[in-house]
């Protein structure tokens, strides 16, 4: 025991010495779970000599909560979704990227340069974009799946076998699309309808799970899983006999973005990291890993050719366009929050 303790202390001391000797540049990332290949982080570290550390979150709201609870100032970059970028700008949590600071800014695809959630791209760069709907196990259910009622008013075969994302924004938007009411509506009747829909649907849902959204489909715990398109593609690649739905009522589109956080302890490293991710070859590695789409020009030659025909990325011709999650005003958002609490209690 004593020798073990001594060895432990020696090892600890060595780590400190090594740390002091290097005193190298660092980068602290706050990222979604399972969303960047380790090899890419290693490549960045090898190219720049910057030591990378990463913490993960499983919903935009959880990230916001954690940053507000005192983590702002300990991370350099985070990867919020579109509407969350807008919220974070409003909360004053993002730093501004100066003109000319990013050498590779010109690589951003024109359609993603000036976006409503970050006009003029002052604080963010594109990371990946994709859609959110749900995948259905075709062994369990053979009927038409391109309908939001699969989740919100499910047929008998699927009742009790549904996993929904633990993500308020997406669950609420898909519900609103199902009812055909506008997002962030402050019409009381419509809000009551939304609440009633969620309450009626909940008994049919087995679980709220985001970081396990892929696993429950692969393991068969869930026959329907609300899921992000690339994550659904990965579940299918891991052997689940599932099909990704493009509901006729509509579905969610989103873009995740790398943002420069306010009070970043290693601002220079953050800028280097953003430039690194704007290199087509590097961001293509993310796309090949996560199975979404990049918002950067020139990635095509680096992409896995199978991505071009991946059903999760190619909506059928008759599918409607997707909808971005909107940022509601405070009064409406507070009703949404109440609904969410009532839903999960």
């Amino acid at each position: 025991m004593r020798t073990l303790l001594k060895a432990g202390i020696a090892a600890l001391a060595l780590t400190f010495v090594a740390g002091a000797a290097q005193a190298q540049e660092k980068l602290s990332i706050y990222h979604w779970f399972e969303y960047i290949p380790q090899e890419l982080l290693d490549k960045f570290a090898a190219e720049t000599g910057i030591e990378v550390t990463m913490d993960t979150f499983d919903s935009n709201e959880a990230m916001l909560a954690s940053l507000k609870a005192g983590k702002l100032g300990s991370y350099d970059v985070a990867v919020p979704g579109d509407y969350m970028v807008e919220i974070m700008i409003g909360e004053g949590m993002l730093d501004t990227i100066a003109e000319g600071e990013l050498a590779n800014r010109g690589n951003i695809e024109p359609q993603w340069v000036d976006v409503p959630f970050d006009p003029g791209r002052m604080h963010s760069i594109p990371y990946q974009w994709g859609s959110t709907s749900f995948s259905v196990n075709r062994d369990v259910y053979q009927g038409d799946i391109n309908d939001t009622s699969i989740v919100y008013d499910p047929p008998d075969e699927l009742k009790g076998k549904i996993n929904v994302l633990d993500s308020q924004g997406e669950v609420m938007l898909l519900a609103a699309l199902h009812l055909g009411i506008p997002q962030c509506s402050n019409d009381r009747e419509q809000l009551k309808q939304l609440d009633a829909l969620l309450q009626a649907a909940k008994p049919h849902w087995a679980s709220f799970n985001s970081d396990g959204a892929k696993d429950v489909l692969v393991s068969g715990d869930a026959a329907v899983g609300m899921i992000w398109n690339g994550f659904g593609a990965k579940a299918r690649a891991e052997g689940a006999n599932i099909e990704y739905a493009y509901p006729r009522q509509g579905y969610v589109v989103w873009m995740d973005n790398v943002v420069l956080l306010k009070d970043a302890p290693n601002r220079a490293s953050a800028i280097k990291f953003m430039d690194f991710l704007l290199e087509p070859e590097n961001i293509a590695a993310v796309t090949n890993f996560a199975r979404y789409a990049a918002g950067v020009e020139g990635v095509t030659p680096h992409l896995d050719p199978e991505l071009a025909s991946q059903p999760e990325s190619v909506p059928p011709a008759d599918a409607p366009a997707g909808t971005f999650v909107a940022v509601c005003d405070q009064a409406t958002q507070e009703v949404y929050d109440t609904m969410w609490t009532r839903l999960k209690k």
């Binding site: 709201e61 909560a65 929050d337």
Partner: peptide, 8 residues
């Protein structure tokens, strides 16, 4: 959920 989740 009050501290880490959606409710905030």
């Amino acid at each position: 959920e009050q501290f880490k989740g959606n409710a905030g």
